[in-house]
C-alpha cells in the first residue's frame, strides 16, 4: 500500500509583477491601492509591462510612478492627457495610460481630458472618482455629491451655490473619438472583478487602435470622508452609485468581436 501523495501547494494570489516592493503612502483602506493593483494585474496578464508608459497626476496618486514597476512620467496638475498625447504620438507602439483623480481630471484638467477625447487620442485613462480632493485636505470636487460635507462645504454641498456633480463618463461618451467609456466601482469583490475586466477592455481598445478609452472607478477616501474603511465602501454603494450609475457608456462594436 502506498502512502497518500502529499498535496501540492498552489499560490492562488500574490502581488503582481508590475508592482514594486514599496509600500504605498495611501491611508489605510483607501481604494486607490485596489485600483493600482488591478492595473498592475491587467498589464501583467496582457504582457504589456515592457512597453507601458504611465502618466501620474497631481493628487493623492502623485507618487503612483514609484509603485508601478514600469516607465512612468509625472504630469502637472490636470495635464496628464496632454502629456499622454505627446508620448503616444511620438511612441505609437507603446501603451500609454494616465491615472487621474476627480480634482485632477474633472476640475483643473477638464480642458485636457475633453480635447484628448475629442481628438480620439489612442490612450487609456483611469479615472478615480472619490467625490473629493483627497491630497489637499478634503475640499469639494466637481464630483462631490449634493449635500455632502467637505472642508469647503462644511454644511453640505449646496447645489444652488455650487452646482451639481459632473458625470464625466456620460459626457465623454458623446465624443466620436472615444472607443470605450465605462464606469465601475471598487466597493466589493464582485465590483472589483468587474472593474478588472473593464481595465482589460480599455487596454485592449488601445492595443487595437480603437481610440480613447476610459474606465471611471468609484473609489473611497476614508480619511477625508471621515468614515472608516469598511463603511466607506458602503458609502460608495449607497450614496455614490445612485448619482454615478455603473454602466457602459461607449463600447466600440469591434471590441465585442473576436480578434481575427
Amino acid at each position: 500500500m502506498t502512502a497518500p501523495a502529499k498535496p501540492e501547494v498552489k499560490v492562488v494570489f500574490q502581488r503582481p509583477e508590475s508592482f514594486t516592493d514599496l509600500t504605498t503612502h495611501y491611508c489605510p483602506g483607501c481604494t486607490h491601492g485596489v485600483a493600482h493593483r488591478l492595473i498592475a494585474e491587467v498589464i501583467d496578464e496582457m504582457g504589456l509591462r515592457e512597453k507601458t508608459i504611465g502618466v501620474a497626476p497631481v493628487g493623492c496618486s502623485v507618487f503612483a510612478y514609484k509603485y508601478f514597476n514600469m516607465d512612468f512620467v509625472e504630469a502637472p496638475h490636470g495635464r496628464a492627457p496632454a502629456m499622454a498625447t505627446g508620448i503616444k504620438r511620438v511612441l505609437p507602439q507603446n501603451t500609454v495610460f494616465t491615472y487621474q483623480g476627480d480634482g485632477d481630471l474633472a476640475s483643473i484638467g477638464m480642458a485636457e481630458i475633453m480635447h484628448a477625447a475629442a481628438r480620439g487620442e489612442n490612450i487609456t485613462v483611469i479615472f478615480i472618482n472619490n467625490a473629493i480632493y483627497g491630497m489637499t485636505g478634503g475640499q469639494m470636487a466637481p464630483t462631490t455629491l449634493p449635500g455632502m460635507t467637505t472642508t469647503s462645504s462644511p454644511f453640505g454641498r449646496d447645489v444652488e451655490l455650487t452646482g451639481f456633480p459632473i458625470r464625466m463618463s456620460e459626457m465623454l461618451a458623446t465624443m466620436d473619438g472615444t472607443g470605450y467609456i465605462v464606469r465601475r466601482s471598487l466597493h466589493d469583490v464582485k465590483n472589483i472583478r468587474k472593474a478588472k475586466k473593464a481595465l482589460f477592455m480599455a487596454f485592449e481598445t488601445q492595443e487595437r487602435g480603437l481610440g480613447f478609452s476610459m474606465v471611471e472607478l468609484l473609489s473611497s477616501c476614508p480619511t477625508n470622508w471621515k468614515i472608516d474603511p469598511s463603511k466607506s465602501l458602503e458609502f460608495i454603494a449607497e450614496r455614490m452609485v445612485p448619482v454615478f450609475p455603473l454602466d457602459d457608456f461607449k463600447v466600440n462594436p469591434e471590441l465585442t468581436k473576436k480578434r481575427a
Binding site: A5, K6, P7, E8, V9, K10, V11, V12, F13, Q14, R15
Partner: peptide
C-alpha cells in the same frame, strides 16, 4: 498572498 492545497 493566498495558498491552497491541491490534491495531486
Amino acid at each position: 498572498t493566498v495558498f491552497r492545497e491541491v490534491p495531486v
